[in-house]
Amino acid sequence: MTHASLSSGTPAPRTDADLIGSNRRFYDALWSEAKLFAPQRFNTWPLVAELVGRSTRRLEIAPGLRPRLPLTDTQFADLSRPALAELARHGARVANAMIGALPFRDGSFDFVCAFDILEHVVDDDGALAELARVAEPGASLLISVPLHPAAWTAFDDFVGHYRRYEPEAIRALLARHDFHIERSAVYGMQPKSSKLLDLGQWFLTHQRARAMWWYNRVFMPLGVRFQKPLRLEPGFSPAPGVDEILLVCRKGDL
């Protein structure tokens, strides 16, 4: 897999320890001050509700306090202890674990979900191998990733992205682990304005507490309120300029 930032300067290689450290610095602080958003508030809910209707054993990886699957009868795995504590307080089953080392038996789940995770992981091939291991044959996989290495910005560095994917690269990576794309949709709530992103990064760097307050109490609720409905299309043929994609996959032959 080509490193996403080769087109705009290569960051130093990262280890799992680096990932854990950056998670604790950024996301533990974020979730410590955040409120849990119910899955029904996101534009993914109609799709999730459809897939939940034919599943009984569900897993969501690293949701933080923005879970997309129902809290009841779903297993959640995350590195952030503040997020896990809040999820558990609302009745969810939780495990402190990384995507590349899941503490579950082979074929444990018939619906696996990982939003905005794969781009953060050094060994994305190993991570998908783990998802394939815990997913039974015929299981659904709901996953989102950012596209196009050439679209790399300082925001990717700031939030800890390790790569962006060319469409054919993510398709091939999924297929290598027997996940086949059934449907896709443009996805994500990243601001389009580079000046707004720069301002947000400045506040997160220099006035983190204030920035977290505004994000959790103002910008996130507004972003959720003004989400556009997902427009799912058969297969996966993203138009030029699409920043992030949501993929509905099936384990096994189509």
Rank of each mutant, 00 (worst) to 15 (best):
A92E: 02
R81W: 07
F104M: 13
L87E: 02
A101Q: 14
Q75M: 12
S80V: 02
S80P: 09
Q75A: 13
L79Q: 04
R81F: 03
N96G: 12
L84D: 01
F76V: 00
F76G: 00
A88F: 01
L71W: 01
A97P: 15
S108H: 05
D110W: 04
F104N: 11
G91F: 09
L87P: 00
S108C: 13
R93D: 11
E86R: 14
A83D: 04
R89Y: 06
A97Y: 08
F109L: 09
N96Y: 11
A83S: 10
L71C: 03
D73M: 11
Q75R: 09
S80M: 07
T72R: 15
R105K: 15
A83P: 10
A97C: 15
A95K: 15
P103L: 11
R93S: 14
R93G: 07
L84E: 04
H90N: 14
A97G: 14
E86L: 10
F104Y: 15
P103K: 07
F111V: 05
F76I: 05
L84M: 07
A85F: 06
I99Y: 03
F109Q: 05
I99N: 02
F76L: 05
V94F: 09
A97T: 14
F115S: 03
R81A: 08
A101V: 12
D110P: 03
F104R: 13
F109P: 00
A114V: 02
D73G: 06
F76A: 02
L102V: 12
R89C: 07
E86C: 03
M98A: 14
R93C: 09
V112N: 00
I99L: 15
F111I: 02
S108F: 00
A85H: 13
L84T: 02
V94N: 11
D106V: 12
P82E: 04
E86N: 06
A101R: 15
A92N: 09
R89F: 06
F104H: 14
D78F: 00
L79R: 07
G107S: 11
M98F: 07
L87Y: 01
L102N: 09
P70R: 05
V112K: 01
A92V: 04
V94Q: 08
F115L: 14
L84A: 02
D73A: 15
A97R: 10
A114M: 12
Q75I: 04
G100F: 02
A114D: 06
A88G: 13
I99C: 13
M98D: 08
G100L: 05
C113W: 00
L102C: 10
L84K: 05
G100D: 14
E86M: 09
Q75N: 06
V94Y: 11
P70H: 10
L102A: 06
F76P: 00
A85E: 14
R81Q: 13
S80H: 05
M98G: 09
C113H: 10
L71Q: 02
Q75P: 02
V112H: 00
A92P: 06
F111Q: 01
S80D: 08
A83E: 05
L79T: 06
F104D: 08
M98V: 08
H90W: 10
C113Q: 03
A77L: 10
V94I: 15
T74R: 03
F115I: 12
A92R: 13
A92M: 11
P82W: 01
A92H: 12
T74M: 02
F115T: 01
R81K: 11
